[in-house]
């Protein structure tokens, strides 16, 4: 599978409160409350690093999780947010051609 590069939509509103992010899609008013692991991925999703890199260094570095399970959860989470339009998933880093 090609690497996925997650990038927050620039118009998605978000704030991290006590380690947990809240995210609002201004287009359809959908409000998301992310758990701590998901919040780590959300914060790191600036389009420069792949989901695999984020999971390996940020998630597995901070939480006691099994890498393969963490990765499949991360993909499901990223795809769900992408379906809601607050995250884009590309197969190349942001800014590259």
């Amino acid at each position: 599978m090609n690497p996925l590069y997650p990038k927050r939509d620039p118009n998605a509103a978000f704030r991290v409160l006590g380690g947990e992010a809240i995210v609002m899609n201004p287009v359809d008013s959908a409000l998301f409350s992310l758990n701590e692991t998901a919040s780590v991925i959300w914060r790191a999703s600036d389009g420069s690093r792949s989901l695999a890199e984020i999971v390996e260094s940020d998630v597995c570095g901070q939480f006691e999780v099994e890498p393969a399970a963490a990765m499949s959860e991360a993909i499901a989470f990223a795809e769900a947010l992408a379906a809601h339009g607050v995250l884009t998933l590309s197969d190349a880093p942001a800014g590259s051609v």
Binding site: P10, N11, A12, A13, F14, M24, P26
Partner: peptide
């Protein structure tokens, strides 16, 4: 405000 990710 947008650059600081507020819900506006």
């Amino acid at each position: 405000a947008r650059s600081r990710a507020f819900d506006i």
